[in-house]
Amino acid sequence: MRYHRPTSIGDAVAIAQDASGTCRFLAGGTDVLVQLRADLVTPDDLIDIKHLPGMRDISRAGDGWRIGAAVTGAEMSENADLKREWPGVVEAMDLVGSTQIQGRATLTGNLCNASPAADSVPAMVAADATVTIAGPGGERTVPVAEIPVSPGRTSLQKGEVITAVNLPARAARSADAYLRFIPRTEMDIAVVGCGINLTLDGDTITHARASLGAVAPTVLLVDAIADALIGSTLGDAALDAAAAAASAACNPIDDKRGTIEFRTRVAGVLTKRAAKIAYERARGQS
C-alpha cells in the first residue's frame, strides 16, 4: 500500500487517475482502516485528503451549507448553527459509532462506504443534499441519492473524489429528523433508518421528503411517504398512511442484524416517530 499526502485536490485527482490497482481516499478512515485490518480491502494507493484546503471547513454557501469532505461528526455536532438548521442530518451523523469514531468519521466517508445502512445518508437524502465532486473532467455537483449504486459501490468514476457535502437553505417553518433502530443504545449498525424533512404552512405540511435506510440495496427516497404526509397536520390517518407507505417501500434482506419481517414493520414505526419529531421541530421554527 502506498500512502499519499497530496498538496492539492488536483494532485489527489491525478494520483487517483493514475492508480492502477485499488485506490481509496482517506477522509476519516473509520471504514478504510477497518477493512484494512480485516484484510477485506488493502488499497494499493491510499490518498489522504484531510489536510487539503477546505476539507475541514463547515461554511455558509449562500443560505445553505458546505461541509468539507474531512469534517468529522464531532465537528458537526459542535456547530450550533448547523445543528439548529439541520438537526436531522447532524443527529444522523452523530449516531455513527462512538465518541471516538465521531472524532474521525465524516459524512462523505459514510456516503462513499455505500452501505445501505449508513445513518447519515437517509438524512442527507431527505435533506435534498448534494455533493461536490472533483475529477479529471473538473468539478460537478450531484444529488446524494445518486452516489450509492449498490452495497459497497458508488457512481463515482475513476479519479473522482467528493470534496464537500452541500445542504440547501433551510426554509421557514421546516425541519428534519432522523431515527434508526438498533438493538442496543449505541455502537450498532442501523437495522432500519428513517430520515424525514418537512416544511409547514401554519400547521399543514406543504413539502416533505422521506428516506429509508437498511431496507433495500441502497438508501431509498420514498415519495409515497411524502405524499401521505403532504397536506396533513400529521393526524393519525396521515401517520398510518405514511407508515404503510414506508413498509410497502421496503425490499430488505434477512441477515444477522434483522429479518425482512422485522425491518418492514419497524420501517413504518420509525417513519411515524421521525415524522412526529420533524413536525414538532418545524412548528417550533418561525
Partner: peptide, 15 residues
C-alpha cells in the same frame, strides 16, 4: 490526537 478523542487503531501511524 490534537485534543480530539480517537481510536488509535483507526488512524494510520503515517497520519
Amino acid at each position: 490526537v490534537d485534543d480530539r478523542l480517537v481510536c488509535s487503531c483507526l488512524m494510520l501511524g503515517a497520519e
